[in-house]
Amino acid sequence: NRRVIAMPSVRKWAREKGVDIRLVQGTGKNGRVLKEDIDAFLAG
Score class of each variant (00 low, 15 high):
N1L: 10
N1G: 14
N1K: 14
R2V: 12
R2H: 13
R2D: 10
R2E: 08
R3N: 11
R3D: 08
R3F: 10
R3I: 13
R3K: 14
R3C: 15
V4E: 04
V4C: 06
V4W: 05
V4K: 07
V4I: 13
V4F: 06
V4M: 05
I5C: 12
I5Y: 10
I5A: 06
I5Q: 08
I5G: 04
I5K: 10
A6C: 06
A6L: 04
A6G: 04
M7S: 15
M7Q: 14
P8K: 15
P8E: 08
S9A: 14
V10D: 03
V10M: 03
V10A: 05
V10E: 04
V10F: 02
V10H: 01
R11T: 05
R11D: 03
R11A: 05
K12V: 06
K12T: 06
K12P: 00
K12A: 11
K12Q: 10
W13V: 09
W13A: 09
W13Q: 07
A14W: 04
A14E: 01
A14S: 04
A14Y: 03
R15Y: 13
R15T: 10
E16Y: 13
E16F: 14
E16M: 14
E16T: 11
K17A: 09
K17N: 15
K17Y: 06
K17C: 15
G18L: 06
G18R: 07
V19M: 03
V19C: 05
V19N: 00
D20N: 10
D20Y: 04
D20F: 04
D20P: 06
I21P: 03
I21R: 01
R22G: 08
R22P: 00
R22V: 07
R22N: 12
R22T: 11
R22E: 08
L23R: 12
L23C: 12
L23T: 08
L23G: 06
L23D: 09
V24N: 00
V24D: 00
Q25D: 10
G26R: 03
G26Y: 02
G26C: 03
G26A: 07
T27H: 06
G28C: 02
G28K: 02
G28I: 01
G28E: 02
G28R: 02
G28S: 03
G28F: 02
K29R: 13
N30P: 00
N30A: 10
N30V: 05
N30W: 13
G31E: 05
G31T: 03
G31D: 05
R32A: 12
R32E: 15
R32I: 07
V33W: 00
V33L: 04
V33N: 02
V33F: 00
V33I: 15
V33T: 05
L34F: 07
L34Y: 07
L34A: 04
L34P: 00
L34R: 09
L34Q: 07
K35C: 13
K35E: 05
K35R: 12
K35Q: 06
K35V: 07
E36Q: 14
E36F: 08
E36N: 10
E36I: 13
D37E: 00
D37K: 02
D37T: 00
D37P: 01
D37M: 02
I38G: 01
I38D: 00
I38A: 01
I38V: 14
I38M: 02
D39Y: 07
D39T: 09
D39I: 11
A40S: 12
A40L: 12
A40M: 11
A40D: 11
F41S: 04
F41Q: 04
F41E: 03
L42R: 07
A43Y: 11
A43C: 13
A43H: 11
A43G: 10
A43I: 13
G44L: 15
G44D: 14
G44E: 14
G44W: 15
